[in-house]
Design a protein around this nucleic acid. Structure first.
Lengths: 337, 337
DNA sequence: CGGTCACCTTGAAACGATTCAAGTTGTTGA
DNA sequence: TCAACAACTTGAATCGTTTCAAGGTGACCG
């Protein structure tokens, strides 16, 4: 036992050549039945485990794909990862999940790690609008699929959701329920997704008498939401609704509203984005824009598998549709006049 | 460019031997200044990236550690992963995060993947009480640290929290706020953590006139909690409080209570476990038992680094203390007589 | 009986790095 | 002038696989 037995040891014990052992492992059908059994027995007996690095070095291809997500603390990305993992397993591939936490430096580090590992390919949720990560990969010849992001001008596959439309859906809903003074928690964030959702909101507002108040945030998590919520409540005249760039922010805003002794949706209506599971379980169940997270992960992994699978492949841009889920946090009803 | 330049190409371009290039990369201080600059330039120019599999094959040691968690959908484990990642980076190591989803078959698959990769070591949250994963790793000579689990009888490091104590804390709190009929959502689950929390609850109840009702669950997520909650409300006489094996269950129970038109804590008090961020943001903020998730991940990675770092090492069992965080879901007050 | 074929097995040449004993310079001190 | 030494560089051996041309055997056919 011990991880130290090599293919040579197996060959010696079974009384065959190393080539035959390799065949038993990789192309059992070409090996004679009796020989195969003898080799299998030797493998068992020695506890032989093949060295993936040697395999990869010689054969040139890796069995793992890298997945770099923007924020593992956001259940949305966890769902994406789950979907990717499922699809990858179906192809016999492993997934190495890493978290850039929206830091460009970390993104670069992980991409370098992936490149050194010669992973089969990378599923990337880019941390910046410029797409520096994508160009690094391109330069190094690493196949990749952009996730949660269109790839305009970048010659690659991508899987995304129409965020402009999502932002418009959310905002149209707020308009329809009578709001005219609406805040956008997300401000002028550098993430494309946030900018798109905001653009959708502006588009929905266009031609109405309603106005949008930009509320800067300094992260996209619950803590940032609490902070933004507290600031929002100080704004006069106070907006009657807030559209948050994601559900984590929305949950934070909700906490801030409660901490101030106010009510949702009476004093402030809230719309989130992503429809994570916790949005439905919140203090006041959150209206949110749902994205098909698992399907995105799955599709991305499938596109990558196709691209690196040897067959024909043309880059594709898969765009999913967002869907508004209305819950109590925007329930029309008694609001200040 | 392209990922195809090897160390030989660099050597040729720089007009030196491959040994020197290797030295520039790994031991720059032994190379003459002028040569080093020339080699660096060649590396840049060719976009050379060293092949990790070749490096690993020859040098025998990998730069990545595997982390296999029970449930990535549980923010508790995401925090553990974050902690592990931090510590790993500090040691110059990468982390490959995988999700066994509590399925033994998946656990086995991922451990096999880690073993083939010859990872530096594995951080394992075992999916069964028997510790089959641990013995697989032991048999293959892969160093590992158990996470969120004591290692009784297993000769390995471990990082855990005193779950019996946590269960006792939660239950003592319920007793102190007047409850006598308490349900335990988690039933006779095969996970050691769940069993321990239940044991702690029983211990706290010992010698009192209170009773514990086992409520089976068929997962440890929000959906299972909703289901268990619905069943709980049908039990007569209805328990006045429920202690849930984790916060996801608790959030699900909370939803079920609301769906039935009842109130928390008046009709049912709820205590969760883990104190995930969403517990505080819930419909009714949840009382919960906090575990130092990031510290656990960090410590586990450090122990592994020490064990595989070459220096002296003796296996250690690090046990953290749980801490009760009281919130509104158990606020003493009007309860049915 | 020779030729063909199917079937199985062999063994050596990669893959791309690291390592290390040995070699080459250049400098210093006696 | 030479020995000793420091500073740097070299190139071959090696890690554990996969791959593949070539070899061996026996069966079958004409």
């Amino acid at each position: 036992m011990g991880g130290t037995a090599g293919i040579k040891d197996v060959a010696r014990l079974a009384g065959v050549s190393v080539g035959t052992v390799s065949n038993v492992i990789n192309r059992p059908e070409v090996v004679g039945e009796e020989t195969r059994a003898r080799v299998q027995a030797a493998i068992e007996q020695l506890g032989y485990v093949r060295s993936e690095s040697a395999r990869q070095l010689r054969s040139g291809s890796s069995r793992i794909i890298g997945l770099l997500v923007l924020d593992l603390g956001n259940p949305f990305f966890v769902s994406v990862a789950r979907g990717a993992e499922q699809a990858a397993r179906a192809e016999g591939l492993g997934v190495m999940v890493c978290n850039s936490a929206q830091r460009l430096a970390d993104e670069a580090d992980y991409l370098a790690l992936f490149t050194e590992q010669r992973v089969r390919g990378v599923l990337l949720t880019p941390a910046d609008a410029a797409g520096s990560g994508a160009s690094t990969l391109r330069r190094n010849g690493v196949p990749f699929v952009l996730v949660d992001r269109l790839a305009p001008g970048i010659d690659a596959c991508s899987v995304s959701v129409d965020d402009v439309k999502g932002g418009a859906l959310a905002t149209a809903h707020l308009l329809a329920t009578g709001h005219r003074r609406i805040a956008f928690a997300g401000g002028r964030h550098r993430l494309q997704q946030v900018a798109d959702r905001r653009a959708g909101a502006l588009a929905a507002l266009d031609g109405t008498d309603a106005e949008l108040l930009d509320l800067e945030v300094d992260g996209l998590d619950v803590a940032a939401g609490r902070d933004a919520g507290a600031r929002l409540l100080g704004v006069l005249p106070r907006p009657t609704a807030v559209f948050c760039a994601n559900d984590l922010l929305a949950l934070g805003v909700l906490q801030a509203v409660f901490a101030a002794g106010l009510r949702v949706p009476e004093d402030l209506a809230i719309v989130g984005y992503d429809d994570i599971e916790f949005a439905a379980a919140a203090a006041v169940p959150l209206t949110s824009v749902r994205q098909p997270a698992e399907a995105m992960g799955r599709t991305a992994a499938e596109l990558l598998a196709e691209e690196t699978g040897g067959g024909a492949h043309r880059h594709r841009q898969v765009v999913f549709e967002p869907e508004l889920v209305v819950r109590r946090s925007t329930l029309p009803g008694a609001r200040p006049a």
